[in-house]
Design a protein around this nucleic acid. Structure first.
Length: 459
DNA sequence: AAAACCTGTTGGATCGGTAC
DNA sequence: GTACCGATCCAACAGGTTTT
């Protein structure tokens, strides 16, 4: 950072010619922005003003009644906030009659374009009687495309609009995936679960309170970020930095301030002393930076007490729920079926909006499957004495899982959560088969299905 | 052996909406 | 107006894998 500013300063002195060039580029870009923002392109201002958004609008405006066009767009056009109005307009007076998503792996579609890009080939139609849309992909090669291009998942428009609040396109590669997705959506959304994601510390505002020198910790409070923890492991990586005890006072003052704000997650909560703060107790954190193509997308962990978190690691604020609910939610969030669902909708971040829209089973409090999820997640999370009080509240021992038992518990958890979602045996298999490209899922799936059959037999 | 590519991930600036 | 807060985008690194 410092190096960059120094270099900029040096260039300012050495190369005044570049300055003019830079300024005219900025002016040209601003002029383009003004043209686009004042054009007939509703909603284009959410996020960056990108040409593809105007391109989508203009092409759609040119389609006459009962006409249709083929269009190539970045996938963000089907998911982003800046194109929501466009998607809704298409769905109001027509439909996406055929959407095929491809990933440019190995640049098989567009040479010279990064292989990580996903591109949508769509047919949009102005049709008064349209009541469904169809989608397939993502395909990573010509061979995959040829195999799957005709097996489109067909979805009624009313159902599609109920999936998300932004009319975004989930990645539904085939009709079985659509069935699984639908079935999972029968469960209530995360936002009704009694937990709310909250950002605790932010890089710009809180910079002065956090020392990022890890060699000699500047205080007793570790400040964690996304990479600091992993599934069932609160000590996975380095902390972001350290803070002194005074950061607790800072958090307390800030939290008390926000309890009186209606929209604040702390609204109406009774917080008066440091002991009332979430930072004083174990809590669940989730990684914000997440992609559907990573080996896992949702990465949550139960953090020990007296550890603070950065914006890349929001934590789940508990309000009106107890430690058992916390263990249950952690168990669901850490399961393959929940992650499979997340991978249908996550692009680059596990945003609060997306997390809030994801389904979480809400079984009866005495449901034996729920109790078993709590027991397993509680034991896996309470890795040592730091969690003693939390584990007592849940009713589990600390440090009770050895390396041999761990994969068994994780497999049983996947089976329990799948069952709570109402999935059938072949749905579970489908979830594992389509979870991640090229992963060796067979041994794990076999274990999971074993537990699944037992649950099915006793249910 | 070097170059190119792929994957997982980060810190941080900034925008825009909303409550006070 | 100010504080707060979630979303979005940018620029980039590290380390592994594949290709040349």
């Amino acid at each position: 950072m410092a190096e960059r500013s120094a270099r900029i300063e040096a260039l300012k002195a050495e190369r005044p010619d570049l300055r003019g060039e830079y300024e005219s580029e900025v002016a040209a870009s601003e002029a383009m922005r003004q043209v686009l923002i004042s054009g007939p392109f509703p909603g284009i201002g959410a996020g960056h003003i990108d040409l593809y958004k105007a391109f989508g609008w203009r092409n759609w405006q040119l389609v006459r009644a009962e006409g249709r066009i083929g269009i190539v767009l970045p996938r963000a056009a089907l998911t982003g906030a800046g194109t929501e109005a466009w998607r809704r307009d298409v769905l109001r007076s027509g439909t996406f009659s055929d959407v095929c998503i491809v990933t440019n792996t190995g640049q098989w579609v567009f040479g010279g374009v990064d292989g990580r890009y996903t591109i949508a080939f769509g047919v949009i139609a102005r049709a008064s009687d349209a009541d469904t849309l169809a989608l397939c992909g993502p395909f990573h090669s010509r061979a995959e495309f040829d195999r799957g291009r005709d097996a489109l998942a067909v979805v009624p428009l009313s159902e599609f609009l109920s999936w998300t609040s932004t009319a975004m396109f989930p990645l539904i590669p085939d009709p079985i995936s659509a069935t699984v997705f639908r079935r999972m959506r029968q469960q209530p959304e995360f936002r009704t679960s009694g937990f709310r994601p909250v950002i605790e510390l932010r890089p710009v505002e809180d910079r002065s309170r956090i020392d990022t020198n890890l060699e000699r910790p500047a205080g007793p409070i570790p400040v964690l970020t996304g990479v600091s923890f992993n599934l069932w492991n609160p000590d996975h990586g380095e902390p972001y930095g350290y803070a002194s005890e005074s950061i607790i006072d800072h958090l307390l003052a800030k939290t008390i301030r926000t309890t009186s704000m209606a929209k604040s997650p702390f609204s109406g909560m009774s917080i008066h002393v440091a002991a009332d703060l979430p930072v004083g107790k174990p809590r669940v954190a989730v990684r914000d930076v997440a992609r559907a193509t990573d080996s896992r997308t949702v990465i949550a962990a139960l953090l020990p007490p007296r550890v603070a978190v950065m914006h890349a690691a929001p934590y789940l604020l508990r309000n009106g729920t107890d430690e058992s609910d916390e263990a249950f939610v952690l168990g669901v969030l850490s399961s393959i079926p929940f992650d499979w669902y997340a991978r249908r909708i996550v692009e680059l971040h596990l945003t609060f909006e997306l997390l809030g829209s994801m389904p979480v089973p809400a079984p009866d409090r005495s449901d034996p499957r729920r109790l078993r999820v709590i027991e397993i997640a509680g034991r896996l999370a309470a890795v040592d004495g730091r969690y003693f009080e939390w584990a007592s509240a849940v009713g589990v021992p600390v440090g009770s899982v050895d390396d041999a038992e761990k994969p068994e518990l994780i497999a049983e958890l996947d089976a329990l959560v799948s069952h709570l979602y109402g999935l059938k045996r072949d749905h579970v298999a489908h979830v594992f088969e389509t979870f991640h490209r090229g992963w060796n899922y067979a041994p794990r799936l076999k274990k999971v299905l074993g537990y699944f059959d037992t649950i099915e037999a006793t249910a």
